[in-house]
């Protein structure tokens, strides 16, 4: 019997889709699960959409002080809600990766971060984790009475509703401790985009340092044509050609779209770790020896500044 508590990710009164990957993990790992939706105004209304996934209960903590995510404000309530559960999970977004280990410490629980799988082996719950930049998988069991984990979003399909209607109840906010009085939320500078989110896109167009200042000029028409999200290599982000949160890689976003374009990306280990689970990979690079070609299903050795516009025209022609 493993009772799981899923921490939903709520932002601006909406449940983020990341939550559905954590529900999938809970279904695989647990005998039953409940969901805690915690956030500011509108969280209760948003939580209504979580009642159709087979949870034993949906707990709602809605409080004006939780409008913006700050770990020290959220953690005490999550820790209290976790009482009686064997496993606490969230998705390994920047929210889950920040919050869950903090909660784990309060529960004296070990933590399996960014897991790619969860399964029962005999009476043990086994987590499969990518380690060494995805160059190995380790299988781990946690020996603490309470366990915690985060799900790598690209490895857990978003849960489908299973019918039924989970009961919803309020869970009172727990007053935060001393830590909360010494941290102040200042701002969230969100990049507004009409494009799909990187971790959620079925097509991604990523660019490397070779694009220089023409990063967006070259990639946007291609992304528009394909309805794709735009990603970047670490080198492109470090050089300032793309914002930091565009980074795909071991230490950036881990993605696994149906179709991934690596444009002017050489294929450093750290980048490959973030995209090698993509279904089909296309690489365009003028260096025929670039390591990315060893991974790409289709490689085109060409100058990207001519090849990409040509590709945009050809795709438009193909679509008629």
């Amino acid at each position: 019997m493993t009772k799981v508590l899923v921490i939903a990710e709520v932002e601006a009164g909406k449940v983020k889709k990341t939550t559905l990957s954590a529900i999938t993990l809970a279904r695989q790992a647990g005998s039953s699960f409940s969901i805690l939706a915690i956030g500011g105004a509108g969280t209760g209304a948003a939580a209504a959409e979580l009642t159709g996934y087979g949870a034993e209960a949906v707990l709602v903590t809605e409080d004006a002080s939780l409008e913006n995510y700050v770990a020290e404000q959220y953690a005490p309530t999550v820790i209290a809600a976790a009482q009686g559960f064997d496993l606490v999970v969230a998705t390994a977004s920047s929210f889950g990766k920040d919050l869950i280990p903090r909660v784990a410490a309060a529960l004296d629980a070990s933590y399996a971060g960014d897991v790619a799988g969860a399964a029962r082996e005999g009476d043990k719950l086994v987590f499969k984790r990518p380690i060494f930049a995805g160059n190995a998988f380790g299988y781990v069991t946690l020996g603490t009475p309470v366990q915690t984990a985060t799900a790598r979003q690209s490895e857990f399909e978003p849960a489908e509703p299973s019918g039924g209607s989970s009961p919803v109840s309020a869970f009172a906010k727990v007053a935060p401790g001393a830590a909360a009085s010494r941290v102040e939320f200042v701002s969230l500078d969100a990049v507004k985009s009409e494009r799909p989110e990187l971790t959620d896109a079925s097509v991604i167009v990523s660019g490397g340092r070779a694009l220089k200042e023409k990063f967006f000029e070259v990639l946007e028409p291609l992304a528009d044509t394909l309805g794709a999200a735009i990603g970047a290599s670490r080198a492109a982000c470090d050089a300032g050609y793309a914002p930091g949160d565009f980074q795909v890689g071991q230490t950036g976003k881990i993605v696994a779209p149906k179709l991934y374009f690596a444009i002017g990306i050489s294929g450093a280990i750290q980048h490959i770790a973030g995209m090698k689970s993509s279904k089909t990979i296309v690489a365009i690079n003028k260096d025929p020896d670039a390591p990315i070609f060893q991974l790409a299903d289709y490689g085109l050795v060409a100058d990207l500044f001519t090849a990409v516009p040509e590709l945009v025209s050809a795709l438009k022609a193909h679509r008629g």
Binding site: S110, G134, F137, Y139, V140, F293, L300, A307
Partner: peptide, 27 residues
Amino acid sequence: NGSSYFRFEAPPARAAGVKVPDVATLV
């Protein structure tokens, strides 16, 4: 130590792809 790693494995290898001569072939 509360975490016990008891098995490791290499990730599945990706089959080598092909190089295409031009954009038309790629599409």
